[in-house]
Design a protein around this nucleic acid. Sequence first.
RNA 1: GCGGGCAUGACGGAAUUGGUAGACGUAUCGGACUUAAAAUCCGAAGCCGGAAACGGCGUGCCGGUUCAACUCCGGCUGCCCGCACCA
Length: 866
Amino acid sequence: MTERYNVQAAETKWQKIWADKKTFQATEDRTKPKYYVMSMFPYPSGRIHMGHVRNYTLSDVVARFKRAQGFNVLHPMGWDAFGLPAENAARDRKIHPAQWTYENIKNMRAELVRMGLAIDWSREFATCDPSYYKHQQKLFLDFLKVGLVDRKESWVNWDPVDHTVLANEQVIDGKGWRSGAPVEKRQLSQWFLKITAYADELLAALGTLDRWPEKVRLMQENWIGKSAGARVRFSLMETAQSRLREAQSSRAQDIEVFTTRPDTLFGASFIALSPNHPLAAQLAQKDAKLAGFIAECNRTGTSEAVIEAAEKIGYDTGLKAQHVFEGQGALPVYVANFVLMEYGTGAIFGCPAHDQRDLDFARKYKLPVKPVVLPPGEDAKNFAVGTEAYTGPGVIYNSQFLDGLEVEAAKQKAIAEIEKRKAGTGTVQFRLRDWGISRQRYWGCPIPIIHCESCGPVPVPEKDLPVQLPEDVSFDRPGNPLDHHPTWKNVACPKCNKPARRETDTCDTFVDSSWYFARYCSATNSDKPVERSQADYWLPVDKYVGGVEHAILHLLYSRFFTRAMKITGHVGVDEPFAGLFTQGMICHESYKDEKGQWLYPEEVQKNADGTAQHVKTEKPVTVGRSETMSKSKKNVVDPGKIIDSYGADTARLFMLSDSPPERDLEWTDAGVDGAWRYLNRIWRKAAEAQLPPVGSPLPTQFTDKGQKARRAIHRAIADVSRAFEQFHFNVAVARVRELSNALDELDAQSANDMHVLREGLEALAQLVGPMLPHVAEDMWERLGHKTLLCDTPWPKADPTLLIDETVTIAVQVNGKLRATIMMPRNTAQKDAEAAALADPNVQRAMDGKPAKKIIVVPNKIVNVVA
RNA sequence: GCGGGCAUGACGGAAUUGGUAGACGUAUCGGACUUAAAAUCCGAAGCCGGAAACGGCGUGCCGGUUCAACUCCGGCUGCCCGCACCA
């Protein structure tokens, strides 16, 4: 008798209909407002994981909701397809990176299609397609023309076994993650994108991104790291000058330092150079001990743990520098391991009293500690610095012309004096560095440059793009396969036609993802990276959804790229993403067997008493806390299997229920069952109800139950719409469930009520549509509609049904709830007061005392102060 | 070290932003249907006391503002995240 919802059949059916009708293909329809929503595109690892499911469900709800609201929606998908794992697969499994990647894409696309996403698949691309990276090469050349590309030397982590540069994350305990060999620091000539040219602008514009999470903006702000200070030159003293002249024929130089605390210059007791400072290198040529010290510093890793534990050590060069201000004598010049060459000038002045690192260093090398900032309430005679540097506010003393000034004023004055003496300038320093994009790898976008012995680096002429990756490469020896290729790199110089060599480095994969959102606008255009009119129509992205792990690099690079693309005329906007949403992670309990080996959830059976055992061996299993799903801990659930047994809608509903999208979500089987039950429940309701035909006019009078249900229906429409707007999908689910509970109250015997039930079920189908698109379409059809639900305009709440004519008013006595009274809406204040005071519970609570004061909030509360 | 976030029943969470705390769901318990189970439906439930009416307590802790505080302010505690020898 009762029919059951056939998930698999229904989901396949609707997916096919959407695809056949090209429902979600977008064009630049200028009669409608546009809405561009996208998820961060996946790396084609081979399978989708739960994080993907959550990500795409979120953007899909937005896409479908906005579409129903009448927006012209673009919701695209692509593949972040270059990267190291493909090369690892090539090495480990003897399969070509391209083959591996495209097979993975094929599998993952099929899984995404099964999720029933409202995606315009006609715009799909992979970044490893020459038809994509060809445009990227063009962008590189355009950026080069306007001076946003630079070639310079930089220090890198070098793996001497794999012959490649490693990212910091690939250096584990100072060793290469694959080779296990100790990583060396090397100087290498690399291509850079000059993101620092936009440091100030990228920082300032964060203020305009009011639809970004505060947290992400702060992270970017810290990353850009603007600090105001001064560059100050310390001249080397006579004896030192002569020593240097001995060491090197060139003339001796000054030492320039950067400081944010020019107000503490009178507290200086030493100068410290980075081990990689040019002057240190110069001295090391004649000083074997110094050379050894520098080598030692470069051997020590840069990992956080190492830095944490590392002691501050230095080497006294014997040089003396003249203090910028008179009468301050000479300062010893050290080379110190804690000074970074990459920041500021690679040299500092040490003021031990007011900087903890300098203090540690000074104590170790018995250097003077002279306080120059007097903390409030301290006495100048008695104040001394012990083991903790004083970095707080105060008044400057022991500092000649700065004496008596507050810290900020003293900074200004000090800078003015330095500038007057031509010993330096006030300046702004950024923590942000230029973006090194060269990678010694095969599976990436080739950098379109040809190196010629006589002409230097020459851009590849645009007519020769793309510079395509050769297919016949071998991964059987370490290093860059492009470099080993017998013929690929041999080309004629485009300028002088002499034999020349191609650049064999490829782009960092972050380059690929820095402009893909723009490419979606013109994905089928083969002439240009983006067609300006299309970009102008769609950009910026209205809502970008993805993991917070990309809060800095990817999002910052994309912001930079967009500016660079604007300057080179490709787009018209500065900011790529007007709205950003960062989703939480998916967590699951983890399990270990007796031997401490991780187990998959499906290998574990839970017992009633809370213990757990292995499904097969029945040996006890330790249940660990719920933590982020990761392959290494095996606490993962395969979305494919969930979709197989419960369908996509169940997975989607579970993702949206309970946990707010920005928070972590714990995956539980019980939660999945709950979602599954609910979707069957509403489907049954739509399929079994005996309703008046589609389009029957609503009666003008309703039963009490009917009237109540109608209020619930319109309340739900209003609340769910608001919840969607606010990204509170868990609330939307709760409101939808309340609506289905309310519809259960209707009387199946009442023909009048059944009109209301039709209204309610149609609203219900529409409200769940963005979240459960398949069930919703199926319900819509069962309700007798011939059109697609997803083409149906979003329902509007009847405002007259949103206000109750009877309200429940809470009555408090001295702020404590004592009674609730039912009153007609907008009852006069004094009537509400009278009714409240007449309530027996209220009288009892007042205990015969007179009311001193009565506060009435209309239709809400009466508070009697007795 | 610097920057930021969070804390509400057994659990996930809600509270239109100062106005009835615990919506909605999970798990639990009781009932109906069933030979039985599953599914489904109905009901109970913050904690303490009470048969109940009702009363007391209650949003991490301490204090403040207010007629009224999960919400605002000050001070703690505990977890979580980002950056980190950035001068």
